[in-house]
């Protein structure tokens, strides 16, 4: 059975291994497997889009269809959730979606590494979104932005209570955004590994967990897509909130 001391525990897959050691003073800037998969994700997105759009046919081929479908998907998402103003934010939303999606999908390949299963990665992404949306709100509304924290119709007596609550609620956004993606990816991959460990342990009866692992892999691919979708759609909703306040 897979325990932590043996070489293939279910949590083994999340270990970050330095591939090229880089030290700047006391700062460890090693090139890790996490960094490698991130670069792979970016490279694959760029390759998919440039190779897909190379022919620029009126009737798209397979690759061009993928590129066009992903464009349409994000463009529609922005239009539905932000409105026509949101088209300005297309490049950043598209990059965000593709980066998270490819990170999740690369993680579905055997022997690879899922960088979205690390809280620090998802939290950095969520914090960047949060900071950008807050700055956007300030640029758009100036000091009026603070009225965000007072729901309309609140009696003056309730303000000292409502304002801290609203601020806490606002500050909890990046945490829930980051934890959602991280928890889904980590839980799914751990579950897969745990069930895969049962296959060898149960001998002939191992077909039962084997079938389960196959089904779970399908589910994981779905979740990998869904979580990338949710991450981006929540970003869209936050942008909408920052643009159109009360």
């Amino acid at each position: 059975m897979a325990t932590e001391s043996q070489p293939h525990g279910p949590l083994e897959q999340f270990i970050i291994q330095p591939l090229v050691d880089v030290k700047l003073g006391s700062v460890d800037l090693s090139f890790t497997n996490s960094a490698l998969t991130m670069i792979m994700a970016v490279g694959l997105v760029i390759a998919m889009l440039t190779i897909g759009m190379r022919r620029r046919a009126l009737v798209p081929g397979r690759w061009q269809s993928i590129a066009e479908l992903s464009y349409e998907f994000i463009a529609n998402m922005l239009r539905e959730n932000v409105g026509s103003e949101g088209r300005r934010f297309f490049p950043v939303i598209f990059s965000l979606f593709m980066f998270v999606l490819f990170g999740n999908m690369i993680g579905m390949l055997p022997y690879s590494f899922t960088f979205t299963s690390h809280l620090i990665v998802t939290f950095a992404l969520a914090l960047a979104v949060f900071a950008a949306v807050t700055i956007l709100g300030f640029v758009r509304h100036g000091m009026h932005f603070f009225s965000f924290f007072v729901p309309p119709g609140t009696p003056l007596l309730m303000w000292p209570l409502m304002i801290p609550i609203e601020i806490i609620s606002y500050l909890s956004r990046p945490i829930s955004l980051a934890v959602r993606l991280f928890a889904n990816m980590t839980a799914g991959h751990t579950l897969l590994k745990v069930f895969a460990g049962f296959i060898a342990a149960l001998g002939v009866l191992g077909v039962v967990p084997f079938a389960l692992v196959i089904a779970l892999t399908g589910l994981e691919v779905l979740i990998a897509f869904l979580q990338a979708y949710i991450f981006t759609i929540l970003t869209c909703i936050y942008i909408h909130d920052a643009l159109h306040m009360h």
């Binding site: 239009r79 539905e80 959730n81 932000v82 026509s84 979708y229 759609i233 929540l234």
Partner: peptide, 10 residues
């Protein structure tokens, strides 16, 4: 076409 939905998945 700006929808009012939160997204089907959400």
């Amino acid at each position: 076409e700006r929808g009012t939905k939160d997204g089907a998945a959400a």
